[in-house]
Simulated assay, not measured.
Amino acid sequence: MQLLDNDTFLSRLSLLFQSSKEHGTIWLTHKRLTHDGDDVTMDSADDSREYPCIIRVTDGKEAKFSTHITSEKLDKFLSAYGTLLKSSMSTLRKRDKKRERVRAEKLAERKQRLAEPILIEGPKRGKGRRKRQRRVKAALKQEDARQRMQEKQEAKEKTKV
């Protein structure tokens, strides 16, 4: 992890936002920086020490850098950081709700087809035999799909518990 000064950090962060505009993920981590080896309590009122803040950035691959911000520079840094975040967030893609709705409709239609039984009618021999065979085959296929769906639901229930 590379430690940068505040201005360099902001410029590298803006470049990282631009490079991952089309696709990619960026993780930002904000923490209070402590150098003590002891457990630090947040509610101690008599503590007059001021701790710097650390902000880390990574894209999960090669870009990993961070910066320390002291309490004197915090307001200036946060205003610049906030404008950078707002400008980069405005370029994010919106969800394609139409595509999601079409997928949900197809899924509902598929579930409805599984719920409806296939009627097997017609003669076993003679005229209409092939039609009956196709329906038998479709009924077997439907039953297999029902079993697979039930197994998936049972597996989901096991993972929830």
Rank of each mutant, 00 (worst) to 15 (best):
residue 42 M to I: 10
residue 141 K to D: 12
residue 35 H to K: 14
residue 20 S to T: 14
residue 22 E to G: 06
residue 13 L to G: 04
residue 145 A to F: 00
residue 66 S to R: 14
residue 42 M to F: 15
residue 98 K to R: 13
residue 31 K to Y: 00
residue 45 A to Y: 10
residue 23 H to T: 12
residue 88 S to N: 11
residue 38 D to V: 14
residue 14 S to M: 12
residue 1 M to C: 05
residue 128 G to Q: 15
residue 133 Q to W: 03
residue 21 K to L: 09
residue 99 R to D: 11
residue 52 P to C: 02
residue 115 A to Y: 00
residue 131 K to A: 12
residue 57 V to I: 02
residue 161 V to E: 06
residue 153 Q to W: 12
residue 100 E to I: 05
residue 59 D to Q: 06
residue 50 E to H: 10
residue 52 P to F: 11
residue 10 L to G: 01
residue 129 R to S: 11
residue 19 S to E: 11
residue 74 L to Q: 14
residue 35 H to M: 09
residue 112 Q to T: 03
residue 4 L to P: 07
residue 63 A to G: 02
residue 160 K to F: 02
residue 60 G to R: 07
residue 133 Q to A: 15
residue 1 M to S: 08
residue 45 A to V: 09
residue 138 A to D: 08
residue 148 R to E: 14
residue 14 S to I: 10
residue 136 V to Q: 13
residue 134 R to H: 13
residue 4 L to Q: 07
residue 108 A to Q: 13
residue 128 G to P: 03
residue 56 R to W: 13
residue 31 K to M: 04
residue 67 T to R: 00
residue 76 K to Y: 01
residue 115 A to I: 01
residue 49 R to F: 12
residue 83 T to P: 01
residue 39 D to V: 15
residue 151 E to I: 02
residue 69 I to S: 04
residue 151 E to Y: 08
residue 80 A to G: 06
residue 26 I to A: 04
residue 40 V to Y: 05
residue 44 S to L: 14
residue 110 R to G: 04
residue 14 S to C: 05
residue 48 S to G: 00
residue 119 L to C: 05
residue 7 D to E: 15
residue 12 R to D: 05
residue 2 Q to T: 15
residue 93 R to P: 08
residue 136 V to M: 07
residue 88 S to W: 00
residue 15 L to C: 11
residue 73 K to I: 07
residue 117 P to F: 10
residue 137 K to W: 01
residue 8 T to S: 08
residue 93 R to G: 07
residue 118 I to P: 00
residue 161 V to A: 01
residue 87 S to G: 06
residue 111 K to Y: 13
residue 100 E to K: 06
residue 75 D to K: 13
residue 121 E to N: 08
residue 81 Y to L: 01
residue 144 D to N: 12
residue 19 S to A: 13
residue 161 V to D: 04
residue 146 R to H: 00
residue 27 W to C: 04
residue 153 Q to I: 09
residue 80 A to E: 12
residue 138 A to R: 05
residue 87 S to F: 02
residue 23 H to W: 07
residue 137 K to N: 08
residue 71 S to G: 03
residue 82 G to Y: 10
residue 50 E to I: 10
residue 59 D to L: 08
residue 103 R to W: 06
residue 94 K to I: 02
residue 69 I to M: 06
residue 84 L to P: 07
residue 126 G to Y: 01
residue 30 H to S: 14
residue 104 A to Y: 06
residue 20 S to E: 10
residue 62 E to T: 13
residue 4 L to V: 02
residue 60 G to Y: 09
residue 44 S to V: 13
residue 17 F to R: 04
residue 144 D to P: 00
residue 32 R to Q: 11
residue 152 K to D: 03
residue 98 K to E: 13
residue 161 V to L: 04
residue 46 D to R: 08
residue 112 Q to I: 00
residue 84 L to M: 03
residue 78 L to D: 03
residue 79 S to F: 04
residue 124 K to C: 05
residue 108 A to G: 01
residue 96 D to Y: 11
residue 23 H to M: 08
residue 35 H to G: 09
